[in-house]
Amino acid sequence: MPPIDSSPPAPDRGALAAFLAPTGRWRTVDIVTCAVLAVAFSIVFWAWNFVWAGIDPLFKFFPPLSAVIYGLWLIPAVLAPLIVRKAGAGIFTEGLAALMSLLLGSPYGITVIYQGLLQGLGGDLAFASGRYRRYGVPIAMLGGALAGFGGTMWDVLYWYPTFDLWAFKVPYVAIAMVSGAIVAGLGSKALVKAMQPTGVLDRFPAGRERARI
């Protein structure tokens, strides 16, 4: 039996550095790629609002179901870490996308930033739990689910605080997490795969495995 020591080992710099070692230093192309992805998604979200306006009424009969497409808003939180494989890529990208939509005039005011940071944090936590070494389907789906959790926690506290816990809040969060896992998690994996042959991932680890021509 090892001696019982109640204080956990202090995380020294060496341990943290070793933990983050696989991610390495952010190159300019990593920073700019995340930032441009954020910009591109702020446009996608904006365009999606028009498509969404046509589908929205379908969900009125069971409001929590509106969380089904929640995953679309979470893609940056998973896609960016999958591509650049750097610690903090989810928070940076999703937070910046939120800041961007604020500069564009988001109907949600400054709170989109908090919400964006929470979503990004969810995504990053998943990749951290894989010690920044695993970028497979399970981690991506976990990332989407946690991002959905972060985002909807904000929703139920800020937008829908008076709603019923079991009739609305719980199913809403759960559906958003499933949607995050599928749309943002699996969707981002599919996007990365589809991007591989286009050559835009050549400078990233995710693009290394493609066939040569």
């Binding site: 050559g199 050549d202 400078r203 693009g207 290394r208 493609r210 040569r212 021509i213």
Partner: peptide, 14 residues
């Protein structure tokens, strides 16, 4: 400026 036996293959090209 000097190139010495320089060759470059783009990633993804044979």
């Amino acid at each position: 400026v000097e190139f010495r036996g320089f060759a470059w293959r783009h990633a993804g090209r044979l």
